[in-house]
Design a protein around this nucleic acid. Structure first.
Lengths: 131, 131
DNA sequence: GTTGACCTTCCATCGACTGGAAGCCCCACA
DNA sequence: TGTGGGGCTTCCAGTCGATGGAAGGTCAAC
């Protein structure tokens, strides 16, 4: 299967698949004409990576997960540890964004937003505390 | 004031201040010896940018905000529009992360996490639906 | 034989820094 | 007056995860 079909089946752009190959995340056989050639197992791996990336795992974590994916004897605890670490990161990010949301929301709601120049948002950013 | 002191007072690393100057976000006078020289107004602008960045505004948005900051006659509505757009982005990010959190949390909690090899997290990433 | 889609490699770019090298400058202390 | 150390300068490279584009080879249909 050529890279275009692999891209359609995995949900990853062809460019990205080549990039993953370049950084050694996934490699592909080559047909006689030099084209990359993907097996159904390759497609599974591509989809696996696509899902893991979309769940917020970094490329390096995908590398780890792929090797755990391929290792039929690894303990599920090894996988769970990575996923839990990632869960913690996601929670931290959500908390951070929620904090931002409160601060910015406060500034926005205190700004009358008309054609007058005084603006609590600018004042807030400038360090003048507004209540 | 030299860049080191400006860095301490603004909370931005000196490297970052130089970078901001390089991209034309903020510029600085030069002393006779070629050192950058910051006034208190420069420090205000640096702190302004530092706060805006930490609230999730991009550098380009900081550029806009800075010009609104400097324009004593602009309408507060102009500022509010930018801030509201950013608020929407933050909300979308939070929603996305919350979705991820649910999915990954589901996978993690369904994995027994011991030394046996079967693992719903890997199965989930591999596309095998687990309930 | 000639389109046009698809494939290849290679190089550049994005955002927002960050690290490091090489070389001035300045001040305190001996 | 010399020396040491810290701070400053510029410039170049690297980060992460792609993405865009150029130049050129391949393939299948008409």
């Amino acid at each position: 299967m050529n890279i275009g079909a692999a891209a359609r089946q995995s949900g990853l752009p062809a460019k990205t698949i080549r990039y993953y190959e370049e950084i050694g995340l996934l490699r592909a056989d080559r047909a006689a004409n030099g084209y990359r050639d993907y097996s159904t197992e390759d497609i599974h791996r591509l989809r696996f990576v696509q899902r893991a990336r979309s769940l917020g795992f970094s490329v390096e974590e995908c590398r780890q997960l792929l090797s755990l994916y391929s290792d039929r004897d690894r303990a599920s605890a090894d996988v769970k540890a990575i996923a839990q670490e990632k869960l913690g990161e996601i929670d931290r990010k959500i908390a951070e964004l929620t904090g931002l949301r409160h601060m910015l929301g406060h500034l926005v709601s205190s700004c009358h937003g008309d054609d007058r120049p005084d603006c609590p948002i600018i004042d807030g950013l400038a360090g003048k505390v507004t209540h």
